[in-house]
Computed example of a mutant assay.
Amino acid sequence: MTSTSHHDERIAKMTFASVYPHYVTKIEKKGRTKEELYQVIEWLTGFYEDRVQKLIEEKVTFEEFFERAKLNSKANLITGVICGYRVEEIENKLTQQVRYLDKLVDELAKGRKMEKILRSQ
């Protein structure tokens, strides 16, 4: 994927707290729960629910969010298109990590089984 540095900078400076409510709305509209969302976030980042809430309160940027995360070793198995980009082709590491999270949330909202979302099978 060819991405502009402006696009990557914009994503890096965006706060997790500004995007999180959109994740919740998206998954709840499709009958999924916050608990499932937390499970997905924990799988990708290692952050438990209380840590996620603290990061929201701190208004950390996505850059800070992923600097603190311990990315799952299976994250590279996340493939497909999200927001018009093929996640496995994104060159900027941080932008790719944010799109990994977007992709997982999208899969959750689309009703995919948790085992598949968490790359267990």
Rank of each mutant, 00 (worst) to 15 (best):
E107A: 10
R119D: 02
Q97H: 15
K59Y: 02
V81H: 04
S120P: 00
K116F: 04
L118T: 07
E88P: 01
W43P: 03
E64D: 12
L108V: 06
K30E: 10
E67P: 11
V40R: 02
V105C: 06
R112L: 03
I41P: 01
L104C: 00
A109E: 06
D106Q: 14
R112H: 02
S73L: 12
Y85A: 15
T45R: 06
G84S: 02
R112S: 03
T45F: 04
E88R: 03
E88D: 08
E115I: 11
I56C: 00
K54P: 04
I78R: 01
Y100P: 02
G80V: 06
K110G: 07
Y38P: 03
F62I: 09
K34F: 03
A75H: 09
E36I: 09
L55S: 01
Q97M: 14
G84A: 07
A69T: 07
E115D: 13
L118G: 08
E64V: 02
I82Q: 07
N76G: 13
I56Y: 14
E36S: 14
K103Q: 15
Y38R: 11
E91P: 05
N76H: 15
L55T: 03
K93A: 12
K29R: 15
K74L: 12
L104F: 12
S120A: 10
V40F: 04
E42G: 02
D50Y: 15
L55I: 07
E35V: 10
K116P: 02
L55Y: 14
V98G: 12
F66H: 08
G31L: 12
F65S: 05
V52P: 05
L71A: 07
I117T: 02
N92S: 15
R86P: 08
R99A: 15
E58P: 04
R99Q: 14
V60W: 04
V87Y: 01
G111W: 01
R119F: 11
I78Q: 00
E42P: 01
C83Y: 08
A75D: 12
K54R: 13
K34S: 13
C83E: 13
L108A: 06
G46T: 08
L37V: 08
K93S: 12
K54Q: 14
I41S: 00
E35T: 15
K113I: 06
L104S: 06
G80N: 10
F65D: 06
E107M: 07
I41H: 07
